[in-house]
């Protein structure tokens, strides 16, 4: 199957290898350029170096969690307006409120969505 290139780069930051890999695969076959990181520290480094168009950022991670990454990101000039989609496995009101406060585009409860819906959300974020 031919892949139509979208010329957009999406970074996936998740400590769960399986989830990260399947997300990267789905993004790749959809036409995105992909980057990935297995923890927050590594993720922040890639974000600040590569300036991806969208970031799928898991909330609970070792070393540096998603909230800490977001905090640092918003301190950076470019990072202030970076497109962040938070990934979570638990839908909680305080989580959502915190995410919105930090200017997160939206959040994804992993087990609630099929991959096509995740792609739709990423595309909406990037106005594709």
């Amino acid at each position: 199957m031919d892949i139509i290139k979208l010329n957009k780069t999406v970074l996936t930051v998740d400590d769960d290898d399986n989830l990260r890999n399947v997300l990267v695969d789905k993004l790749t076959v959809t036409g995105f350029e992909t980057l990935s990181a297995a923890n927050g520290e590594e993720g922040l480094k890639i974000i600040l170096e590569k300036h991806p168009d969208a970031i799928l950022l898991d909330a609970l991670m070792p070393k540096m969690n998603g909230w800490q990454v977001l905090e640092k990101l918003r301190e950076d000039e470019w990072g202030k307006t970076a497109n962040v989609i938070m990934l979570t496995s638990l839908e909680q009101v305080d989580f959502i409120a915190h995410a919105m406060e930090k200017g997160v585009f939206t959040y994804i409860v992993k087990s609630n969505l099929v991959l096509d819906d995740v792609i739709k959300i990423v595309k909406n974020t990037l106005h594709i």
């Binding site: 769960d16 989830l19 496995s89 638990l90 087990s111 099929v114 991959l115 096509d116």
Partner: peptide, 12 residues
């Protein structure tokens, strides 16, 4: 939830 999401996305 995490392993269930993994199974969901891989079968998807």
């Amino acid at each position: 939830r995490t392993p269930l999401a993994t199974l969901k996305w891989y079968s998807d």
